[in-house]
Design a binder for these strands. Structure first.
Lengths: 251, 251
DNA sequence: GCATATTTGTCCGTATGTATA
DNA sequence: CTATACATACGGACAAATATG
């Protein structure tokens, strides 16, 4: 049995999920804070991170019992976490078979770029008058360049994703933000299948910087054109590499 | 007691959820078909419909016991359905208080229109060369006009939503489709609070037709301009009416 | 303010169908 | 075809929070 599983014939149990345990019904130290996290959300956070970093690669099955015992949570709680991630399209649920880390089809990759092209370009075109709040974009470009100097290619990938998320944030729409957060998280699944972070991301460091500088100069149209070119090139490259690799992945 | 609630000490029970009962463990007639649905998903479908048609208005609390008995499903299953709808932003979950039909804040309404403006206009602008596949738009306009003749204002609302969903479908992106399906479902929540379907929808019947005809003539730019004007007017009108009413709704 | 009833939160045990070795 | 493993779903139990008198 998992730690903490003994002695409770019902009611609450202290979870072994996180070191800073804040079980929703336990001793709530920080109840007043916004965003109280449920056990399921914390479990989802853990799994989301594992998936994003490739610890659970696409195609892997996540067994309820094994993970539930490993994290010390009940099946109900774990299934709740699975549902959160399924809704984020990181897991797929097959009835009576369990949940699996999503394996994107090639059409998923093309659809992701269709959304990016539509939304990211629309955001740039819909910007008002300069100057723009480019803090997030600035930081993402700097992070990416620093990671590249250190040879940290997964870090470059993360920074790249941050750049485009920060770009979308310029629209100031919470729903659009959330959409793109999900879409970019899905994109990571494709990166893990291809598994060539340097080849995938290094070419785009300079292009991100060019887009940033165009925006800083207030040249919306040029930024939009650069972005469109970026996305088309990125899509072409990724789809080609992905189509070669995706056949090897099980499930 | 609900029908079917008696006599089962465990295991499966034939649900009273749907007339065409396809309990996952029951006699599966159409097993081969894609998209086998779990009990929770079917329950969610029912509740989603009830919310969309205003049977459960915004602010209403959905009691576990009452609904669970009424639908003949266990609490666990019902809670699973609640979670699905919570992720669709139709319900909100308050710890130890239960789930409620979402009451949109005014900022939610403005954000919904921000997304619509961004996405719908980008779709029109991103259309290729005419002619376009306008079947869905055609049907929606016809449905709306027919419903208006019959004085069926909720029907006009539904047709209106179908029109804009069909418009987005022209982009051919599954993810964009799903985003807008969710956003338009949220918008319905606002309509139910204002509760003046005629005033809200009647003025836009002709404008939908104008947009359709512009697209049929292949005049993308004009269609885009009409759409932008439509959305700005609709937002202004709805936000004004909504701000007056939202204070009256409990929770 | 306090005691009580109701409701939710969490977990367990179990029966049964489905998929796979 | 059988056996095994697992997911689905139900009912029950009790703690904790909220609502009610």
């Amino acid at each position: 049995m998992a730690p903490g599983a003994a002695g409770a014939t019902g009611g609450r149990r202290e979870g072994a999920v996180a070191t800073t345990d804040r079980a929703p019904g336990g001793l709530a130290d920080d109840r007043a804070l916004l965003g109280r996290t449920s056990t399921a959300e914390r479990v989802a956070d853990i799994l989301r991170t594992r998936i994003a970093e490739g610890f659970f690669p696409p195609g892997d099955r996540l067994a309820e019992d094994a993970i539930g015992k490993a994290l010390g949570v009940s099946r109900n709680t774990l299934r709740e976490a699975f549902r959160l991630l399924t809704h984020e399209r990181l897991l797929v649920h097959e009835l009576n078979r369990g949940v699996f880390v999503r394996v994107l089809a090639v059409e998923d990759v093309t659809d992701i770029y269709r959304v990016r092209r539509l939304v990211e370009c629309a955001v740039v075109q819909g910007l008002g008058d300069p100057p723009y709040a480019l803090h997030g974009l600035d930081a993402a470009v700097a992070d990416g360049e620093r990671a590249a100097r250190e040879g940290d290619w997964p870090g470059v990938s993360t920074a790249n994703i941050h750049f485009h998320h920060a770009l979308v944030a310029l629209a100031g729409s919470a729903r659009t933000d959330e959409l793109m957060r999900g879409v970019l998280a899905e994109l990571r699944l494709a990166f893990h299948v291809v598994d060539d972070p340097r080849g995938l991301h290094q070419p785009y460091l300079v292009r991100n910087r060019e887009i940033l500088e165009a925006l800083r100069a207030g040249e919306r149209a040029r930024a939009g054109a650069l972005l469109a070119g970026y996305l088309d090139d990125s899509r072409t490259r990724l789809v080609e590499a992905y189509a070669r690799r995706v056949a090897d992945v099980p499930a």
